[in-house]
Design a protein around this nucleic acid. Structure first.
Length: 668
DNA sequence: CAGTGAGCGAGCTTCCGCTTGACTT
């Protein structure tokens, strides 16, 4: 036994599930183990970057990784050799390199293998062509890590000093916050613009009716604001009834709708939020369970690749259950959008496509998420949907109306993946056929402000800018909420808190180019140059840090706490007579006595919004709207703590509901 | 269901991106 185990080779990957899969392919000559992600990192308690010594990182093995490293060291001692088989990207290469350092392996001779899919032939093939660690790729990761550390650990203390302790800033979280804050400003500044549309109801001689919208006047297509007022709309509508109308043109085309790609982390989080109302955190927790129980492939991915086997399995399921009309002759392939997407990774899909959700029994939410993943995958291998689109122009004098018809002729992937679309039926119409205008309806519209970000749209936006990774979308969204920078309102949309507004303002005014959506994209280009061996990584860090540090030092001097949150109020303390001043805490501004700690008098800086009704409990105070620590709205008496009335429901609405109930009772 | 800050001065707060269990209430 001892002799046998000494002959084994140790293969290290990053996750235990991947280890198990590969172990099944490799048999008894190999032992496959997992590193559980990065084994070394910068220390949590200090900067950990020796800026003056060419940005030398001071890596440590965090306590929680000690056990893993000790175990791997033991296995290494018994093994004939070690093979590093982590992902073929920047982070994967760095994990491999940190392993050589933590396990005292020779980084220039330790075997490094990569594969483009986790199948037996692919892994056997990879074992035949080992390489060594690509230090350029490792260095690109070090630059990324060090810049993130410098930004985070230099900007956060600035906020502690100038605003309040415990705050944070970073390349990713601060841009997320900025997006939410700036969207709020756009909404606040929005001025609605009026415009009108004119609809006509037509009938044919055969008494078939249809609707069309005014589309052209004197050969000129109407733009959105061409009819800007009621007066303009009425001028047009007056002229229309007296004209005689006929069909000027009929165009028929076939429209194809292609199925969406199978899920990545980002699109899964978006759809689960939209369709199931799951937070990204909940989605990831459920997906992790599905993954660990072998039901789905890995849930942190930005790739839309599908293995050939999975396509074959989908093909089989489709032909058995949906019939030959739904079978594609060849599997459908999707292109990866993300520049950093990993060819070796797959989209999130069911591991056994035959396990359709009806057969699936487990916790309800888990099943619903599986159902979503399964449908999206099957749909991706179905034919496109086809529509007959008809466009009909109706002319009367100088005026042309247009009607659009849309009829589904083949549902294709829509059979499995339902999406909203409107079918609109038009009667059979021919060119030059006369029609009658029965009714003209002018409609007033107003442009609407952009909508606040939801989890879904925020993740979509961050991903589009290349900010954050599949493993960080959900944690980032949690972080800006636990920091009290943003809240989710009743519609599950993000609104900045007073604190979030102030933090964003300070960062934008003083560190504009860092909390910018383009910052990540710009440095990613630099990281690419490092990865190709075009520049040393410390040079990139130094070019960034020089100007950054200079600016930071200046801002420490020039930005005063008093400018950010002025303290003066002019109010005198009713307990001790000293002046009351504005203080800034975790929950925003509040008013406190300047005699602290002798006098601990405080009051809220903002009066809570009043419902303008008597407190139902004490009949003396007024009911006001307040928020709990977590941000949830509740209603209480303004005489608190003398009166302890509190309710989740709006007591005014409750009263009204009760009255209508009573009226119903009376009628009976 | 309803909060919050400083200090002799020590020690701490904080980033992003990999990956899962292991402290206890």
């Amino acid at each position: 036994m001892g002799l046998r185990s000494r002959q084994k080779k140790l293969v290290i990957v990053e996750s235990p599930t991947k280890a198990k899969t590969i172990s099944n392919f490799l048999g008894s000559d190999y032992i496959v183990e997992s590193s559980y992600g990065h084994v070394r990192d910068l220390p949590k308690g200090k900067l950990g970057v020796l800026v003056e010594e060419n940005f030398e990182p001071q890596y440590v093995i965090p306590r929680k990784n000690q056990k893993t490293v000790t175990a791997l060291k033991k296995l290494k001692a018994k093994a004939t050799s070690v093979i590093l088989a982590t992902d073929e990207d920047r982070e994967g290469e760095a994990i491999a390199w940190h392993l050589t350092q933590a396990l005292q392996l020779d980084e220039n001779s330790t075997e490094r293998i990569v594969f483009h899919e986790i199948t037996e032939p692919a892994i056997q093939e990879a074992l035949l062509h080992p390489r060594t660690i690509n230090s350029n790729l490792v260095n690109a990761q070090q630059a990324r890590r060090v810049i993130d550390r410098l930004v985070g650990y230099k900007l956060s203390p600035f906020l502690w000093k100038k605003i309040s302790r415990g705050l944070s800033a970073g390349r990713v979280q601060s841009v997320a916050l900025r997006l939410i804050v700036e969207r709020e400003h756009e909404i606040k500044d929005f001025k609605p613009d009026e415009y009108w549309t004119i609809e006509g109801a037509f009938t044919t001689d055969e008494h078939e009716s249809f609707e069309a919208s005014l589309f052209k006047i004197k050969g000129k297509a109407l733009l959105r604001f061409d009819i800007h007022s009621q007066k303009e709309a009425e001028e047009i509508t007056q002229r229309l009834p007296s004209l005689s109308y006929s069909i000027a043109d009929v165009q028929k085309t076939e429209i194809k709708k292609t199925p969406p790609a199978p899920f990545t982390t980002s699109t899964l989080q978006q759809e689960a939020s939209k369709r199931l109302r799951f937070s990204s955190k909940k989605t990831m927790m459920l997906a992790q369970r599905l993954y660990e129980n072998g039901h789905i492939t890995y849930m942190r991915t930005d790739s839309v690749n599908l293995s050939q086997e999975s396509k074959v399995a989908a093909h089989r399921w489709i032909s058995e259950h949906l019939g030959s009309a739904y079978v594609l002759s060849e599997g459908r392939t999707f292109k990866n959008k993300s520049r950093l997407a990993q060819e070796a990774h797959e989209a999130i899909r069911p591991t056994k496509p035959d396990n359709s959700p009806e057969l699936f029994t487990s916790e309800r939410d888990e099943t619903r998420l599986y159902d979503l993943i399964w449908r999206r995958f099957i749909a991706s291998q179905l034919p496109h949907a086809r529509f007959d689109a008809t466009s009909v122009d109706v002319q009367g004098g100088d005026y042309i109306f247009r009607a659009n018809g849309n009829i589904l002729i083949f549902d294709g992937f829509l059979k499995i993946w339902q999406t909203k679309f409107e079918e609109r039926n038009l009667p059979h119409l021919q060119k030059d056929q006369p029609v009658h205008l029965d009714k003209v309806t002018p409609t007033q519209h107003f442009t609407e402000p952009p909508s606040r970000y939801s989890e879904a749209t925020l993740i979509k936006t961050l991903e589009a800018y290349g900010i954050g990774r599949p493993s960080t979308y959900a944690p980032t969204i949690s972080l800006i909420q636990t920091r009290n920078y943003v809240l989710k309102n009743a519609q599950r949309k993000f609104e900045p808190t007073e604190l979030g507004e102030i933090v964003a303002k300070v960062l934008i005014e003083n560190f504009a180019d860092i909390v910018n959506v383009d910052f990540t994209a710009t440095i990613e280009e630099e990281f690419d140059t490092i990865a190709l061996g075009g520049i040393v990584w410390q040079r990139v860090v130094s070019d960034f840090y020089g100007p950054f540090e200079k600016n930071l030092n200046e801002r420490y001097e020039t930005v005063s706490k008093e400018d950010i949150v002025p303290e003066k109020t002019g109010i005198l303390c009713e307990l001790c007579g000293k002046e009351m001043i504005i203080k800034f805490g975790r929950f925003g501004k509040f008013i406190a006595c300047s005699g602290y700690p002798e006098c601990k008098n405080t009051k809220p800086a903002h009066e809570p919004p009043s419902l303008d009704m008597r407190c139902p409990k004490c009949n003396v105070g007024d009911v006001v709207q307040k928020r709990t620590r977590k941000g949830r709205i509740f209603y209480g008496c303004n005489r608190w703590p003398e009166c302890d009335f509190a309710s989740w429901k709006n007591p005014k609405e409750e009263e009204r509901d009760k009255k209508t109930e009573d009226r119903k009772e009376e009628k009976k």
